[in-house]
Simulated scan of single mutants.
Amino acid sequence: MSLKRLLCISFVVLAFTSLFLSVIGNAAVQDVLRLDEGTSYVLNLETGSKQTYTEFLNSKQFEGHKLEFNVYVRKTGNPILDDYVLELRTNLDNPEWKFGDTIYHGASVLVWKGKAEHEALVPKIILSGNVPAPIQIIREPGFEAYKEITGIGEKPVEVVLTVGTTRDGTTLDTFIQKLEPSMKFFATNEGIQDAKSKVESNLEEARDKIGGTNLEEDIRRLSEEGHPGWASLLSQHYKELSVMVEQPPLTLYVILSVLLGLIVGAAFIYVYVSRGAGKGVDVGQISTELNDTSGRLEEKSSAINALSTRFARSEDDEKRRVARELIKIRASLNEISNEIRTIADKIKGPR
């Protein structure tokens, strides 16, 4: 055989080998199965509710409820190699799988094995299991090196279907395709949901009084990252603290400022006149103005009375306490008003 002929044969063999490897490579990366989201659904065997696959994604399910997943899968038409298998995996409690006529128990099982099953229609996959306890791995600030710290929270739960190959018949050796979207939802319970609602309510009420703070965000993170009980308790204390540091109403500031001006002015006039510095002034006019001042004090006293009445009707303990203090202030103002009238009479009398 001539060298030229040998080179031609070698070239042809190399070309066919490259083509064969290319076909195998393309088959390995192509999707061979597709999840039918429109047909698949989930039953809650505790409540009797039924949701489509899409509706159930990222939902919150109560601890202990038994769920049944009915999953439909179809072939895409791409080449399926004989050693392909389908892994069914979940972290539900007490999982039971049904694939065709065969029932499996375990968090992870391999099905759809061999050419005969590959050529047939993919049977419906049925999974039943219980929603696990809402215990999750948490991250403690400053202690990130500890990876196994657990807390109470909305635990991610998954149902994952993966095409791959296996050597030992029990675990995947290579991963070919993960069917998307994989079913993901969250395990929770009524206590967690109630605590989160209470936290948000308390934080919102505090924010209305003192605005947003870093402490508010820290309490919210505490709730979301494994400590809903502590977060609920701290949010209650935070709300109570916000009431104590809440700024008094602007109306109260205005009233007190005006009152202070009236009282100081009246006292100055009395001292000025009583010490003789007011010789030649119209004491009758001064007396009249003092009486007017007394009248304005009574008007402001009435305004304080209206404000205290509104505060007294509040469900907030701190506002009711402020109302009691305002009543005391009003009583003192009435006394001051009477004293100013007395001063006016004294100024008018000696002259």
Rank of each mutant, 00 (worst) to 15 (best):
L86Y: 07
A195S: 15
R5E: 15
P228M: 04
T170D: 02
F143I: 02
R5G: 07
D93R: 14
N91Q: 13
S294Y: 00
T102A: 13
R167K: 09
I125R: 07
G77D: 03
M244A: 07
R324A: 06
K184P: 04
I340T: 06
D292W: 05
T213M: 13
S257L: 10
R320A: 04
V13M: 05
N202V: 04
V12W: 08
L86M: 10
P249Q: 07
K209D: 05
N94W: 10
E68D: 04
N58H: 11
A27E: 15
I269R: 10
T165N: 04
N202I: 01
P134I: 06
S108C: 03
S232Y: 02
K346I: 12
V71C: 00
V264R: 04
I152F: 07
K198Y: 08
V163F: 01
S197M: 10
F99W: 14
S337E: 07
I192M: 12
I340D: 03
S308K: 03
I329S: 05
P156E: 11
D173G: 11
V160E: 13
G349E: 15
G278V: 12
G226Y: 01
V243P: 00
R74P: 00
V85C: 08
G295F: 01
S287A: 15
I137R: 03
V23R: 14
P181G: 09
D93S: 12
F185A: 05
R320V: 08
R330Y: 08
K66C: 01
F20C: 02
R207T: 08
L222Q: 01
I192D: 14
T90K: 10
T342L: 11
G265H: 11
